[in-house]
């Protein structure tokens, strides 16, 4: 499909899980085909509840897939691994640890560095995400945006092959979100890590990504792929570029088709025609 070999390849991925209460099998994702190229920032958008976060959890290895195949650099993904690191929607910081202690938690869990090494590199990483001077602050003393910077630094310190971002800015206020997007792009352009970014924010997806993938409603599949041909580096004014607005219209329409479905069909989970 592509001339370069894919970093991440998903073929016909199906993810199901049991609902405890109703004792029924729930299909979150059904037949996802996609590839993430090396060094690419790919964003997935879709209506809420379409299984995009579930898909990302499968890529991280937190949940098993029921069908299809999911490979990173040609190797089957079965469990979490050092080649991937997740930036979570909820920061998930240990409240009794300082910023520094939280940033090293990822490598500590992996057991991939000595403590001295981890601390030295963590200080650089903290500077990179703009938290210099806050090394000894506790998470509860930080704002939401700063907590997400720690979350990001923790993932970056593990130096993964692929960065997974699960709506990391969704809980932030509008201004902080824009600043974080700008900064994420800056950090990303320095490291050029292959990244998979999940969001429900269409503007965010276009602004950040090389390509945007639109998911159908549940059970999620790839509905269409939009190549974002905006030049980099991108500043926030790109968001008012006519080309940007065209992309936005295109993606919005695509998502709207998924939303404009009678309620009973949504409940039954019938795939879109």
């Amino acid at each position: 499909m592509y001339d370069r070999s894919a970093k991440l390849a998903a073929k016909g991925v199906v993810i199901e899980y049991w609902l405890q209460r109703s004792r029924s099998l729930f299909t979150a994702v059904k037949g996802v085909d996609l590839e993430v190229r090396p060094g690419e920032l790919l964003a997935i958008v879709g209506p809420s509840g379409c299984g995009k976060t579930t898909f990302l959890n499968a890529v991280d290895g937190l949940i098993p897939i029921a069908g299809g195949s999911l490979t990173l650099d040609g190797r089957e993904i079965r469990s979490p691994g050092r080649d991937r690191a997740m930036v979570f929607q909820q920061p998930g910081l240990l409240p009794w640890r300082t910023v520094l202690g939280n940033v090293i938690f990822g490598v500590e869990a992996q057991g991939s560095m000595t403590k001295t090494q981890a601390i030295a590199r963590a200080r650089q990483q903290i500077e990179l995400v703009g938290l210099k001077g806050f090394e000894d602050a506790y998470p509860l003393e930080l704002s939401g945006g700063m907590q997400q910077r720690v979350n990001l630094a923790r993932a970056l310190l593990t130096d993964p092959e692929m960065l997974l971002l699960d709506e990391p800015f969704a809980a932030l206020d509008a201004q902080t979100r824009e600043m974080m997007q700008l900064e994420l792009l800056k950090i990303w352009s320095q490291t050029r890590k292959t990244a998979l970014f999940i969001t429900h924010d269409i503007k965010e997806a276009i602004y950040l990504a090389d390509r945007v993938i639109v998911f159908t409603r549940r059970p999620g599949r790839v509905k269409n792929v939009v190549d974002i041909k905006l030049s980099r580096p991108r500043d926030l004014r790109v968001k008012r570029d006519p080309q940007f607005l065209t992309y936005e219209d295109e993606i919005w329409e695509s998502i709207q088709e998924e939303l404009a479905v009678p309620a009973e069909r949504l409940i039954a989970g019938v795939p879109a025609a």
């Binding site: 991280d60 937190l62 979570f88 998930g92 009794w96 938690f105 869990a109």
Partner: peptide, 27 residues
């Protein structure tokens, strides 16, 4: 123990003993 913290620890591949010592016990 907060589910979000456990998820983070698992995502980074922390073995159970480390999750217990570094996440569950201090919490």
């Amino acid at each position: 123990t907060e589910a979000a913290l456990l998820r983070v620890a698992r995502s980074f591949g922390a073995p159970d003993a480390l999750i217990f010592r570094r996440v569950v016990l201090p919490g």
